[in-house]
């Protein structure tokens, strides 16, 4: 795809801007992105990928804020103190807890950037063991609920015992 600004260089930045519910797609090269900084939400002149990201987050949050919950502008990370406004400026998080703090604002942006919101790659070996067990427990719980709903109580009880066993394992390790 060719850059829609200069019609010369390949477009390497692709994003969607929504203004008043109207969606516009952008396909531009880095050179033009830098020159036409004002095109990109959340920037004024100077362009960086971080500005672009926080811009994406900003208008998504804007739409959501009207619905319910704490307005995004008032969120602050309890661990590192980063505020939503700071994140918008930096485009980067301050600590791992920021991911919980700004969780509600994150999904739409991750979807645009990665096309997905959940990790499906490597697990750390040590912490990963526990995560695997926890995932297994969640799965068994769902199965158990289903058995109960189908009134197959004997199988449900077996699943309950398995879950107890795994829970014990988790609490011993942590």
């Amino acid at each position: 795809m060719i850059c829609q600004e200069c019609q010369q260089r390949p477009a390497t930045l692709h994003f969607t801007k929504i203004v008043n519910g109207e969606k516009t797609e952008f396909h531009i090269c880095e050179h033009c992105a830098r020159e036409k900084g004002e095109l990109i939400p959340g920037t004024s002149g100077g362009f960086s990928i971080h500005n672009l990201l926080s811009g994406l987050m900003d208008f998504d949050a804007g739409n959501k804020a009207k619905v319910a919950g704490t307005p995004a502008q008032q969120l602050q990370c309890p661990e590192c103190g980063m505020t939503y406004v700071q994140f918008r400026k930096l485009g980067r998080f301050g600590c791992s807890s920021c991911y919980q703090t700004f969780d509600r604002q994150l999904d739409p942006m991750l979807k645009r950037v990665h096309g997905s919101t959940a990790h499906s790659g490597k697990l750390p070996a040590r912490a990963g063991e526990q995560i695997k067990v926890r995932r297994q427990v969640n799965e068994l719980r769902q199965q158990m609920q289903q058995r109960i709903a189908e009134e197959e109580f004997e199988q449900a009880a077996q699943l309950r015992d398995q879950i107890r066993e795994l829970d014990k394992q988790i609490s011993q390790e942590s």
Partner: peptide, 24 residues
């Protein structure tokens, strides 16, 4: 990873400063 504790989240994967590197 055997000697240091990484910032990792079940759902989001390895946590990075910039969300463009999140996950793997």
């Amino acid at each position: 990873e055997r000697v240091v504790d990484y910032a990792f989240d079940d759902r989001r994967g390895y946590l990075t400063s910039c969300p463009t590197n999140l996950g793997t």
